[in-house]
């Protein structure tokens, strides 16, 4: 697999600035400096419009930074890098393909032999309890099930880097809890490097090994906290004192930024 040295960061962002609409335009990201190491689960936490999605899109090679440096495995990101898994808030499933075909899309679009990846796709579906839905159209699934399919799709090619942009943002609270637990289980199992955008403090603290807080426009790194929480977590963790201490800390930070009024 050619895994990089664990001390070598897989992502390096140095003074990354992104402006839309030329010199006088809107600054979405202002000198973001951030390293991410192999196997980390980093939550990007911040209010709407603070540039979280833009940062993720730069990492996915879908946007070019205006200034600064952005490296993946030591190389500048020019286009979408190899070994990337992506999931969005809207699951972006293709309605006209069945569940299995949707999960296999990265193989198909990557020009790989789709049949070779079918066992892996079925295994992923089994992992999220959707083994009986392989040949069903997405329209027949609930929102939570669709998002599970999208996660399977993002994991098909064993990505070295998983980018998730508010994947559970459109789900009801109970489904969201379930998917948080599912995603944590999957991550604890394979430890793929993950950047997870959210504006839920609870979700960020529950899922991640590190929380990076973005300040509102222009997006800057306001806080960068490595969490000292158990590696294997259950939803019950959210009632533990150490979890609540972190959650309270981030809420206090949001208050000082003027985003929450008590």
């Amino acid at each position: 697999m050619g895994r990089a040295d664990a001390s070598q960061p897989i992502i390096v962002s140095r003074d990354l600035t992104k402006r839309f609409g030329g010199r006088a335009g809107l600054t979405a990201l202002d000198r973001i400096s951030l390293d991410v190491r192999e196997g980390e689960f980093v939550a990007l936490l911040g209010p709407s419009g603070c540039g979280k999605s833009t940062f993720l899109r730069c990492l996915a090679g879908l946007e070019q930074p205006t200034e600064g440096e952005l490296l993946f495995d030591g190389r500048p990101i020019q286009g979408p890098p190899q070994g990337l898994g992506i999931a969005f808030q809207r699951d972006a499933l293709l309605d006209w393909f069945d569940v299995l075909q949707n999960v296999l899309l990265p193989a198909e679009f990557g020009g790989l032999r789709v049949r070779d990846h079918e066992p892996r796709a079925r295994e992923l579906l089994r992992m999220v309890g959707l083994q009986d839905f392989a040949h069903v159209y997405p329209s027949a699934l609930s929102g939570g099930m669709r998002q599970r399919v999208a996660i399977c799709r993002s994991l098909l090619l064993e990505p070295r880097l998983l980018l998730m942009d508010e994947p559970f943002g459109a789900l009801d609270a109970m489904t969201r809890d379930q998917l948080n637990a599912d995603l944590h289980r999957i991550w604890a199992d394979r430890r793929m490097t993950t950047l997870f955008v959210t504006h839920s403090i609870t979700e960020a603290v529950f899922l991640s090994t590190r929380v990076v807080v973005f300040s509102p426009r222009p997006g800057r790194v306001a806080e960068n906290v490595v969490l000292d929480l158990p590696a294997h977590r259950t939803l019950a963790l959210r009632e533990e004192p150490e979890f609540l201490r972190y959650a309270r800390g981030f809420r206090a930070l949001f208050e000082t930024m003027g985003l929450i009024h008590g």
Binding site: A60, L62, P80, F88, R90, A92, P106, F109, G111
Partner: peptide, 13 residues
């Protein structure tokens, strides 16, 4: 939808 096209691009379609 724009995100579907983004996904396709990220997957090197």
């Amino acid at each position: 939808p724009a995100d579907t096209l983004d996904l396709a691009r990220a997957l090197h379609g």
